[in-house]
Design a protein around this nucleic acid. Structure first.
Lengths: 166, 166
DNA sequence: GGCCAATAATTTGGGCCCGAATGATCACGC
DNA sequence: GCGTGATCATTCGGGCCCAAATTATTGGCC
């Protein structure tokens, strides 16, 4: 951001350009700020925490989900992380090659693959996650404390509604 | 989403897994819901509006920015859209090949490239954008009306803070 | 046992994505 | 004029991303 147009300038240009189309500008403002914010926060987290360890965003998400659930089926990682299993296969190959993750076939069901962190993977997450959380804290500090729970709730509601079948 | 773990279950698992690490769970909740929401809303918009016209998310953002500003330098599109100029070059090639966009070198400054929509591109945006906005409206409707301006403002603040140099 | 539909993960092909390198153009000082 | 450093857009290489096709396994059902 910090381009030649400010957020406010952009929003004004949008409104005058579209004034004859009978649109919901409030909905536009919410979603466009949603994408801007997600992008900006992701960029910051990548730059401060991930890039120094040569991790991509998706790789970090995979490590995170695996870390939380101790052992987890691949399809769960993909659902939880919000990307396809095809993408996951590639990212897991990278992470396994780097020794951060282990794949093993399920004993119960030979179609399933179970993923775990290697000891190196666990060490990495234990070291990285507090740094990650510090950056999250710095960004969320921009919201008045009283508004934070309401913001999280609004985002949760949008997630649920957007995920509904149509 | 709608996986085998609900949002609430995941948040509980996270908290018990990380209880000894002295983390800011409120900040975590805000950012993780930020990414979930952005992902879910984007997936919905892609599925309902973009995919039927074989447009990617980034291609649509490029069309949108160009539509709003009538004519615009490539570097502005990249900044406004939140991706690199390298990415933009490829996407513009695709859009130009499909006849939705025109590139021309600036007369004032031979280094710059100016982008405009073709008539077909303008027709497409005029047709697509109301549909896009309808979907935005459906998603934002999940937030109580009184909370919408506050949500947009919270997102704006996060964007600004996350974009600050460190 | 032998077939068969359902369900997994992976591979494939094409597009997006970035940082770094490249080549073109500009602005400025002389 | 003529360098020289700054500023553009593009290209290149490697990784992510998805839908569709592929390969493997499972759980009925006879």
């Amino acid at each position: 951001m910090a381009g030649p147009h400010t957020l406010a300038e952009t929003e004004r240009a949008v409104e005058s350009r579209l004034s004859d189309m009978n649109l919901d500008f409030e909905a536009m403002a919410v979603t466009s700020n949603l994408f801007r914010a997600a992008n900006a926060v992701r960029n910051r987290l990548e730059g401060t925490v991930l890039k120094p360890h040569d991790l991509t965003w998706t790789a970090f998400v995979v490590l995170w989900v695996t870390w939380i659930w101790e052992e987890v089926e691949t399809r769960i990682i993909a659902e939880e992380g919000g990307f396809s299993k095809a993408t996951l296969s590639g990212v897991l190959a990278t992470l396994e090659r780097r020794g951060l993750v282990v794949r093993e076939r399920s004993a119960d069901d030979g179609r399933l693959v179970i993923v775990r962190l290697s000891p190196a993977g666990r060490r990495l997450m234990r070291r990285l996650f507090p740094l990650f959380n510090q950056q999250e804290q710095a960004v969320v500090a921009a919201i008045p404390a009283a508004d934070r729970p309401g913001t999280a709730e609004a985002l949760r509601r949008m997630t649920v509604t957007a995920s509904e079948p149509r």
